[in-house]
Design a protein around this nucleic acid. Structure first.
Length: 374
RNA sequence: GGAGGGAUACCCAAGCGGCCAAAGGGGGCAGACUGUAAAUCUGUUGGCGAUGCCUUCGAAGGUUCGAAUCCUUCUCCCUCCA
């Protein structure tokens, strides 16, 4: 089952609140989805995610196909049971790996050859195969297998990716056997407005329960990303969720919501945490910096998460410097909480018609490379 | 007491006459990270008034145009034999 309902449309922007219902519960939108590529949000237990009210997480087709193999997940009773996550799950199709594993891959019309990053073995992924794997994994939302073009990229290259992505989207839909999974289409087009329009028209002409915007935040600037959203979102149906893939930073979430995005996912909070950086209301706080050696304040003075209630910057810095695994857990917990909570605040602001106020208040405190100080 | 081996930058450790302010690790400091080949990657790590100068390779002397590298003495450490 899959249902999307819009609750409140902001009168000053394209922002809206809503709700998505899947067989694994419902969650409010706009939503931030933590990424758990290999059926685990790195360094967190599903109970942590529940505790911070994350309603949906991501996993990846390509990675789970290579290891442990989708059959094992299917035999385990599906991804939810396999990883003990009761909320909703979205699986990415492997389309992003077409981009990120470019050195190990070869694209043709039928599909993509990959050399496994694990053992070098050769694998062929097609729209049909990506769909079948996602059916075996059993997520609530599955994604069309797309071609995510790099940035920068020539017009011709971007155009080819758009057209191939459209043909592949049709094939994914045709390949669908299960009726209980929501298949989302993906709009491509690089940073070319006309290609974005073309892609939006083509993808949205396929009747699917949701649509995503892919191929952004791959190196283009914020302005270009915003311009693409302004181009594409108006061409997407209002009654379907709009998902901006792979984004983002706190400011990107606000800017995306304002431009009509309902769903986001990003590895940034989990990856940065493992690399020793916290996301706070005043900006990034590089926990390992010497500045925090004797700083006994919490990561974020305004944060109500478990970590900020119980641990100091000095202690977390110590854990990071000492290479202790708890550092990964605690900072990841905070970072994911921060974004999940931020989305809750944004929803509340939209509900109260105060998104602009929330936005300016956010920017008044947040500096991208802020020190996170009091 | 005798015979060897060793002392190099914050630590470990290469270097054994000029291309050495000195390899490589570690540690320190800093930067990056946006549908995860990422507990990763990159830069930096003697001092300056800085396309050059000054001080450094246990200490002090010496040889040499030139020494971390060769010689002498000393100090300390290690191994083996008494």
């Amino acid at each position: 089952m899959f249902e999307f309902t819009v609750h409140k449309q902001d009168s000053n922007s394209r922002a809206r609140t809503g709700e998505i219902k899947t067989a694994h519960g419902s969650f409010a939108t706009p939503v931030f989805m933590p990424v758990g590529t290999q059926a685990t949000v790195k360094a967190l237990d599903p109970s942590d995610l529940e505790e911070m009210h994350a309603g949906i997480i991501l996993a990846n087709t390509y990675h789970l196909y290579l290891r442990p193999g989708e059959d094992i997940v299917r035999k385990a009773g599906g991804l939810h049971r396999f990883m003990n996550w009761k909320g909703s799950i979205l699986t990415d199709s492997g389309g992003f790996q077409v981009f990120s594993l470019s050195a190990l891959r070869k694209i043709d019309e039928d599909g993509v050859w990959f050399s496994s990053h694990i053992d070098g073995s050769r694998h062929y992924l097609t729209p049909e195969k990506a769909t079948a794997i996602q059916e075996a994994l059993g997520a609530d939302i599955i994604m069309c297998f797309d071609e995510c073009a790099p940035y920068p990229c020539s017009y011709e290259e971007a155009c080819k990716a758009v057209e191939r992505t459209s043909r592949w989207a049709e094939r994914c839909r045709a390949a669908q056997q299960r009726t209980d999974q929501a298949l989302f289409g993906i709009i491509q087009g690089g940073t070319f407005e006309d290609l974005r329009r073309q892609s939006a028209a083509q993808i949205c002409s396929i009747d699917l329960p949701g649509y995503a915007i892919g191929g952004l935040s791959v190196g283009e600037g914020k302005n270009e990303m915003h311009a693409m959203l302004d181009t594409v979102v108006p061409l997407m149906p209002e009654t379907k969720p709009r998902y901006l893939m792979g984004v983002g930073e706190p400011e990107d979430l606000i800017e995306g919501v304002k431009r009509g995005i309902d769903m986001f996912d990003c590895v940034l909070p989990t990856r940065m945490a493992r690399h020793g950086t916290a996301i706070t209301s005043s900006g990034r706080l590089v926990v390992r910096n010497a500045l925090y050696k004797e700083d006994f304040l919490p990561l974020d003075l305004e944060c109500r998460c478990y970590v900020c209630q119980n641990y100091s910057r000095a202690y977390l810095r110590h854990l990071v410097k000492a290479g202790e695994i708890l550092a990964h857990h605690l900072i990841t917990y905070h970072n994911v909480y921060f974004l999940v909570n931020m989305m809750a605040e944004i929803r509340e602001a939209i509900q109260k018609e105060e998104l602009d106020i929330y936005r300016s208040s956010f920017y008044s405190r947040y500096r991208r490379n802020g020190m996170g100080g009091p």
